[in-house]
């Protein structure tokens, strides 16, 4: 996050949009998985920032504050327009057999058709992200998609470092499971 941002940019709609608009939209778009919802979240975020900037007393780089508001607004809109029920990640999203080995594991990392299927894989991953519970989706989007380091992302989500890593890990394992299922179904279809 860059730090050349005087707070005055938060009070002026032109400057605010010019300086932060793209980052706000990008985060909102990742969180909601569609343009219309991301635009609504962005609009609400901008209005909220302009309303509250006068009393902002945080760090000289307001990006953390802006990200927080964006996450709240995106979460709100995602809940309202929920397209898929959220999965439960209370336990590790891996199945184990009677001898306690992981079952149904396909290592799809070395498939020869991997590149040819990249478009479908991307779509599967987006859907799988969309069905994560809010906090898990936020962890993946912040760290794996937006490149926010662990410590900063944990702070944005009010989590300890360990708590953040646990969430991120389970979210990734859920995505792994979904891709695993996707490739299994794909291969079964090919064989029939």
């Amino acid at each position: 996050m860059s730090s050349d941002a005087p707070i005055s940019a938060l009070l002026d709609p032109e400057l605010l949009i010019e300086r932060y608009g793209e980052r706000i939209f990008r985060l909102a778009r990742r969180m909601t998985n569609n343009d219309a919802d991301a635009e609504d979240a962005m609009q609400n975020t901008l209005i909220k920032i302009l309303k509250n900037a006068g009393s902002y007393r945080g760090e000289s780089d307001p990006m953390g504050w802006i990200y927080r508001i964006t996450l709240n607004e995106a979460r709100e809109i995602h809940r309202k327009h929920k397209r898929r029920p959220a999965v439960s990640l209370d336990s590790l999203p891996i199945d184990f057999d009677e001898s306690n080995h992981p079952t149904g594991v396909h290592d799809f990392s070395r498939r020869p058709d991997k590149d040819a299927m990249a478009g479908e894989v991307d779509a599967q991953i987006r859907e799988a992200i969309d069905e994560l519970p809010d906090g898990y989706r936020e962890a993946v989007v912040l760290h794996d998609l937006e490149g926010v380091p662990y410590a900063e992302a944990a702070k944005l989500l009010d989590l300890s470092l360990g708590g953040f890593k646990t969430r991120l890990h389970r979210a990734r394992l859920h995505l792994r499971k979904r891709l695993d299922q996707f490739f299994t179904a794909h291969d079964a279809k090919d064989r029939s």
Binding site: S55, R57, W65, N72
Partner: peptide, 8 residues
């Protein structure tokens, strides 16, 4: 709900 006064 926008937490105008943040961490400092």
């Amino acid at each position: 709900d926008a937490e105008p006064c943040s961490d400092e």
